[in-house]
């Protein structure tokens, strides 16, 4: 038996099942509803920031005198109340670890989002069609990373469970009040396909894992040896008759 025939046979034994999974999940990505897969079925983007009257609020200068290590101060309006969001350690991206403090812009006091506030922020991101107008909250809880629905998020995050058909889950960053996004049973379903395609069986949200690298190496040999098989089949005239 030629060397590439042997390689083709044994590589197919190793990667065959995963190869079928790759093709099926790839086909799923091609066909899926991207809005649904991203958990955006009932998502409505937060409104642009309303204009705040700063004339009678505490000045950033005064706040920064109290917090000398702040690298970025951001104005924020949460449920009509103006705040200053202070960042002491700014991550490269918002979902990377950030070290925030939230300060009430009227009193200068450190503020912490309460469960009631989180619920209000969450409900404001819910697209209100008729079916959703009666949406109620089942549960609200504070989670620490890793968060199964948003594996990349590295900051503590509130999860708000909505009682609707899609089983919507709304994620709000704990200190900043930033809306991270929605997840629901549709996104969860799509995430299973991503996990399978990326062989991310440890669920760390990455495709740079050793199993995946090993399998990609084997499948590379499978396709290269397959190429030689096609070439020899052509040479031997196996394609001239059925």
């Amino acid at each position: 038996m030629q060397w590439f025939k042997k390689i083709h046979k044994w590589m197919s034994v190793i990667v065959g099942l995963q190869l079928i999974i790759w093709v099926i999940t790839g086909l799923f990505f091609n066909l899926m509803d991207h809005q649904k897969a991203a958990g955006r079925l009932h998502y409505s983007a937060p409104a642009t920031q309303q204009i705040v009257n700063y004339q009678n609020l505490i000045e950033p200068k005064q706040i920064l005198h109290q917090y000398p290590d702040v690298v970025e101060l951001t104005t924020s309006v949460i449920l009509n109340q103006p705040y200053y969001l202070l960042n002491v350690n700014k991550g490269l991206y918002a979902h990377f670890a950030n070290d925030y403090r939230l300060v009430n812009a009227q009193t200068g006091q450190i503020a912490e989002l309460t469960e009631t506030m989180v619920n209000h922020i969450a409900l404001a991101t819910l697209l209100l069609d008729e079916a959703e107008s009666a949406a109620t909250i089942i549960n609200t809880q504070l989670l620490y990373p890793p968060i199964a629905d948003f594996l990349k998020q590295q900051n503590p995050t509130w999860q708000v469970l909505i009682n609707n058909d899609a089983e919507t889950r709304i994620y709000i960053e704990a200190v900043s009040g930033r809306v991270i996004g929605h997840s629901d049973k549709h996104k969860q379903f799509a995430d299973v396909f991503f996990m399978l395609h990326f062989m991310d069986y440890a669920q760390v949200g990455s495709f740079n894992n050793w199993l995946m690298i090993a399998m990609s190496f084997f499948v590379l040999w499978l396709s290269i040896s397959g190429f030689f098989l096609v070439v020899t089949s052509l040479r031997k005239g196996k394609y001239y008759s059925f």
Binding site: S216, L229, S233, Y239
Partner: peptide, 24 residues
Amino acid sequence: RWSMLLLGLQFIIWSVTGAYMVLV
């Protein structure tokens, strides 16, 4: 044999590009 005559090139593309993306 026949389907791979037509699809084989794409399989090589899939495995080469996939390997690059997971490796780096």
